[in-house]
Design a protein around this nucleic acid. Structure first.
Length: 587
RNA sequence: GAGCCCAUAGUUCAACGGAUAGAAUAAAAACCUUCUAAGUUUUAGAUGACAGUUCGAUUCUGUCUGGGCUCACCA
C-alpha cells in the first residue's frame, strides 16, 4: 500500500534528522483535494512533544535527539523532514509543506491509472485487512424480531445495518457468522395467546400467511390491553406465560403453530431484504440453561438473592442492579443472555468477537451481562462482546407502538415506496421492487447508526438526490455507455502520458480511495461511510459525464474515459453490494 | 436522585482534533434533434450558551439550557 510507503518514509526521515521516530504517524485524506491525496500532521504533533520536553527540561524522555533539526516551529520541522524524505517519484509526484506544518502528498497520475487498470483486471476487490483477533472469525447478531409481533421498520433498519456490517467485515477478510436471537417465550407471547384463546376464533379459518400475521398482531394488542385493564386477565396471562415456560401440553399446540407462522413470515422478510442467517437462536431453547447458570453463579457469589429474586448488584462496578431470575423463578432477559453467550461462543469454534446490533436503551443491560460473563470466564468472554447501538426509527407523527397499533410494517413501507416509484417513473415490476428496497435501505444506511431517524414517508425515503436510485441510475448510465463501446472493452488500457483534466482526475482519485473507505467502514462499523463515498463518486462521475464526451473523443482519451466509466460502475455496484443493495442493468 | 446519548442551513442529515463546516430537500433561473434529464450548472442559508485545554475545537473537558433513554422482577 502506498500509504504505508509514505509512513515508512516519514519514519526514516525522522530517524535521520532527529535520531528518533514516532510510533504512530497518521496519514489522512484531506477533505479538500487542494491539499493532496494524503496529508500528515505529524510535524505539528511531534513539534509539540519536543517543545514540551524542552520547556519541562526532561531531556531523558527522548535521549539522543538532534535538537537543531527540529527547527523553531512545526513548519521548519516539516520542511526539514521533507528535505530528507526519499519516496519513489513514480508513486508520489509532489510533496508540499503548508502552514502551520502540514505535509501534503500527491500520488502520481500514472500510479492512480495503473491502480484502476488493475482493479478492472481483477474479479475481486482487494481490500486492506482488518481483524478483531487471531481467529479472524466473528459473529454479527442482528434482526431479532420477536415472534407473534410485526416485522416493522425498526427491524428493517436493524437488518439493513446488520447485513451491511456483515458484508463489510467479510470484505476485509473475516469469516462472519450471521446470528439472530428471537424472543419466542415471555409475557408478550402470553398476551397474544391469551387474546387468541379468549376470542374463541377458529384459527383454521385463516387462509394465508398474511391473514394469520394480521390476526396475531391484533390479538397481541387485545392481550396487552386486557393485561393493563383487567386484573383477572392479567392473572390469566401470567398463568399462560408459566405454561409456555413449562411447555404445558395444553398450550403447546397453539404456541407451536402461531410461532411457526411468525417464523415463516420472518423468512419472507429476510428474503425480501436479501438477508439470511447461519443460526436462529430462540429464547425457548436457552431459558432453562439461563436459569442453571444464574443459580450456579449465585453460589459463586457473582449474583445474590434479594427480595425473592436473583440479582446482580452492580454498584461495586459502577453498574446498575439488574434482575437475572425473577421472584417467580423464571430467568429474565438477563438470565437468558448468559446461556446465549455460552452457546454462541461454542457453536462455531473460537470467535474473536460477537457484535450485537441492538438499540441503545439496552446499553445498561449489555454492560451488566458483559461484566458478568467476564466474571464467569475471563479468558473466554473478556473484550469479546460489542454492543453496536443503532437508533430508533421514530414516527414524526408520534411514537410507534405495537400496543397502539400504529406500527409501520416493513413490507407495507416497501409497497408504498413501490407505488411512489411507479407513479414517477416507468419501469417493470422487478426493477420497481429492487429500487424500492434499495431506496428504503439506503435511506437508513446513509445515516450514522446513532442517528435517530424521524420517519416521514415522503421525506425520509428519497428517490432522488442522495438516494439509492441516484446511485443505481449512475451505474446504469455507465453500463449504457459501455454497451455502446463494447468493441473497446476487451482492449487493454495502455494509458501513456495523457494530460488529464480536473473532471477526470476527480473521478480517478475517488476510485482509488474506495478500498480504504471500506476498511474505515469496517473499523468504525459504519456503513454510512460507504454510502457517503458512493454518493460523492456518483456526483463526481455525473459532473464529468456532463462536461466531457466519452464516445466521441480522440482515441487515447476515449480509452481512458471508458476505463473511468467501467471502474465507476464496478465500484458503485460493489459498494452497493456492501450495503446490501442490488443494482439493475437498465432503468 | 444517579447515569448514558443527542443538539450543525427552514427541514432531514455529513464532517479519524485539522486547512474555506459538506450534501440533500424546499425557492429562483439555465441546460434535452447531442453517450439515459431518475441527470447537470448557478444563486442564498448553520455549529444551543458560557468558560477551559490546544498551533488549531462541530469534535476533547467543565457548567448551563433544551430534547431522548436507562436505573429490580418486560423483552
Amino acid at each position: 500500500m502506498i500509504k504505508d510507503e509514505i509512513i515508512k518514509g516519514l519514519k526514516k526521515s525522522f530517524k535521520k534528522i532527529v535520531s528518533y521516530s514516532p510510533k504512530d504517524i497518521s496519514l489522512e485524506k484531506p477533505s479538500n483535494s487542494n491539499f493532496g491525496d494524503y496529508s500528515s500532521n505529524i510535524a505539528m504533533i511531534e513539534y509539540r512533544n519536543f517543545a514540551i520536553d524542552t520547556h519541562s527540561h526532561v531531556p531523558g524522555n527522548k535521549p539522543g535527539i538532534n535538537w537543531v533539526n527540529i527547527g523553531n516551529n512545526p513548519f521548519e520541522l516539516a520542511t526539514n523532514l521533507v528535505k530528507e524524505l526519499q519516496l519513489d517519484s513514480t508513486l508520489v509526484s509532489k510533496i508540499e509543506v503548508v502552514k502551520p506544518g502540514f505535509i501534503n502528498f500527491w500520488i502520481s497520475d500514472e500510479f492512480l491509472v495503473s491502480n484502476v487498470s488493475d482493479l478492472l483486471k481483477k474479479e475481486k476487490f482487494d481490500y486492506p485487512k482488518y481483524h478483531f483477533g487471531k481467529n479472524k472469525k466473528i459473529m454479527v447478531e442482528f434482526a431479532h424480531p420477536n415472534t407473534h409481533k410485526l416485522f416493522h421498520i425498526g427491524h428493517l433498519r436493524n437488518i439493513s445495518t446488520g447485513e451491511s456490517v456483515v458484508r463489510i467485515l467479510e470484505a476485509v477478510g473475516n469469516k462472519v457468522i450471521r446470528g439472530n436471537y428471537q424472543g419466542d417465550v415471555g409475557l408478550h407471547i402470553a398476551k397474544c395467546l391469551y387474546g387468541i384463546r379468549n376470542s374463541q376464533f377458529d384459527i383454521n379459518k385463516l387462509n394465508n400467511l398474511q391473514e394469520r400475521i394480521e390476526f396475531i398482531g391484533k390479538m397481541y394488542s387485545v392481550g396487552t390491553k386486557a393485561y393493563e385493564d383487567d386484573e383477572n386477565a392479567k392473572q390469566e396471562i401470567i398463568k399462560i406465560n408459566k405454561m409456555i415456560y413449562e411447555r404445558d401440553p395444553e398450550i403447546m399446540p397453539l404456541w407451536t403453530e402461531t410461532r411457526q407462522w411468525s417464523l415463516d413470515y420472518f423468512n419472507e422478510n429476510y428474503k425480501r431484504f436479501y438477508s439470511h442467517f447461519d443460526r436462529l437462536y430462540f429464547e425457548s431453547e436457552i431459558h432453562q440453561r439461563g436459569l442453571e447458570i444464574s443459580k450456579e453463579i449465585l453460589k459463586k457469589g457473582i449474583l445474590e438473592k434479594s427480595q425473592g429474586a436473583i440479582v446482580f448488584n452492580g454498584k461495586k462496578y459502577g453498574l446498575d442492579t439488574r434482575v437475572f431470575v425473577n421472584s417467580l423463578g423464571f430467568p429474565t432477559y438477563e438470565g437468558k443472555e448468559l446461556a446465549l453467550a455460552e452457546k454462541e461462543f461454542s457453536d462455531f469454534g473460537d470467535l474473536d468477537k460477537i457484535i450485537h446490533t441492538v438499540t441503545p436503551e439496552q446499553t445498561s443491560f449489555f454492560k451488566v451481562t458483559f461484566k458478568i460473563e467476564e466474571l464467569i470466564d475471563e479468558k473466554k468472554y473478556k473484550n469479546k462482546q460489542y454492543h453496536l447501538a443503532y437508533e430508533w426509527v421514530k414516527l414524526k407523527a408520534g411514537k410507534m407502538s405495537s400496543r397502539e397499533g400504529n406500527v409501520i410494517e416493513a413490507n407495507w413501507l416497501i409497497d408504498e415506496v413501490k407505488k411512489k416509484i411507479s407513479e414517477k417513473f416507468k419501469c417493470d415490476e422487478q426493477t420497481t421492487e429492487i429500487l424500492a428496497v434499495a431506496s428504503v435501505k439506503y435511506s437508513f444506511l446513509k445515516n450514522g447508526t446513532q442517528t435517530i431517524i424521524h420517519f416521514d414517508i415522503d421525506e425520509s425515503i428519497a428517490v432522488d438526490g442522495n438516494s439509492a436510485p441516484y446511485l443505481i441510475y449512475t451505474y446504469v448510465r455507465c453500463q449504457s455507455v459501455l454497451k455502446k463501446a463494447s468493441n473497446y472493452l476487451t482492449r487493454t488500457y495502455d494509458i501513456d502520458k495523457l494530460n488529464f483534466n480536473l473532471d477526470e482526475l476527480g473521478v480517478l482519485r475517488l476510485i482509488n480511495q474506495f478500498p480504504e473507505i471500506v476498511q474505515q467502514a469496517a473499523l468504525q462499523l459504519s456503513p454510512n461511510l460507504i454510502a457517503n463515498y458512493l454518493y460523492d463518486l456518483a456526483q463526481k462521475y455525473n459532473y464529468f459525464y456532463q462536461k466531457n464526451k466519452i464516445l466521441e473523443s480522440e482515441e487515447k482519451t476515449k480509452l481512458f474515459r471508458l476505463m473511468l466509466t467501467q471502474a465507476t460502475g464496478k465500484v458503485i455496484k460493489e459498494g452497493l453490494y456492501l450495503l446490501g443493495i442490488k443494482t439493475v442493468e437498465k432503468m
